[in-house]
């Protein structure tokens, strides 16, 4: 299995007064098909790690290889291109365009990647079928439930066939039923070979991943998912 992500010695310090070290000497390898959760409380450096993994921010030190491409030396244009074509983002608040229908929102996922216009509708339909939203193609996001909206957002992330699905608190705005549906979908996607990184503060969400990484004060530590040290909360379901 080839590495999708290889972080080595990554550090990021914010130039405030006094300087805040958000990430310290982070090493992380994620291979193709992995389902990794990164868990930590707010202020632990989760967002910084997400921004660096998503090529939205640059580390001060260390190297970040995405599918073997060393990204820290790339200019903004090249990183934007990589971000658009290789990383699929899933956000806590979905970020769907309210005035566009579901298909338009999904097609937005490959607007900037240089993918041909022809067949875009079919690809969007296929992505919607993958997340089980094929029956809502012409709906506006306002008429969908939170879980349905997040599934549309996941379809948007999937349409470009990215190397990595980067999910930032994907269930943060969802109730327990919808959370369970989205987590079930993640498992289906992982079974289909998608590489998933889920960043969360929710132990129950984190527990669903194959591999768990805890981030505390900017430092990563692997958790053995087989020996979950925290009790799994009942309503959101235990291990599937």
């Amino acid at each position: 299995m080839s590495d999708v992500i290889a972080l080595s010695g990554v550090g990021r310090t914010f130039a405030t007064d006094p300087p805040v070290p958000a990430l310290v000497e982070v090493d992380l390898r994620i291979t193709r098909g992995d389902y990794v959760s990164i868990i930590g409380p707010s202020g632990s450096g989760k967002s910084t790690l997400l921004n660096i993994l998503g090529l939205l921010d640059l580390p001060d030190t260390g190297r970040y290889e995405l599918e073997g491409v060393e990204t820290t030396g790339l200019d903004d244009t090249a990183r934007t291109a990589l971000r658009g074509s290789r990383i699929g983002f899933v956000f806590q608040s979905f970020h769907l365009l309210a005035h566009r229908d579901v298909t338009d929102n999904v097609m937005l996922g490959e607007l900037y990647t240089g993918a041909p216009r022809s067949g875009r509708g079919e690809r969007a339909a296929a992505a919607l079928d993958r997340v089980g939203m094929g029956h809502r193609r012409d709906f506006r996001p306002g008429r969908l439930s939170g879980g349905e909206r997040q599934r549309v957002a996941i379809a948007r992330a999937l349409i470009g066939d990215p190397a990595l699905l980067l999910c930032d608190e994907p269930t943060g705005n969802l109730d327990s039923v919808n959370t369970a549906a989205v987590l079930d979908l993640f498992e289906e996607l992982r079974a289909g070979g998608t590489t998933l990184v889920v960043i969360t503060h929710d132990e129950a969400v984190s527990a669903r991943a194959d591999r768990r990484v805890r981030i505390t004060d900017g430092r990563l530590s692997e958790l053995d998912s087989a020996t979950v040290e925290l009790p799994v909360l009942g309503a959101t379901g235990g291990r599937a």
């Binding site: 491409v69 090249a78 934007t80 291109a81 658009g84 074509s85 900037y112 240089g114």
Partner: peptide, 16 residues
């Protein structure tokens, strides 16, 4: 701009 990735797959610059 073309970027070389492992396996020789290029990533074209974003365009609209």
């Amino acid at each position: 701009r073309w970027l070389r990735r492992r396996g020789g797959t290029p990533a074209p610059a974003s365009r609209l």
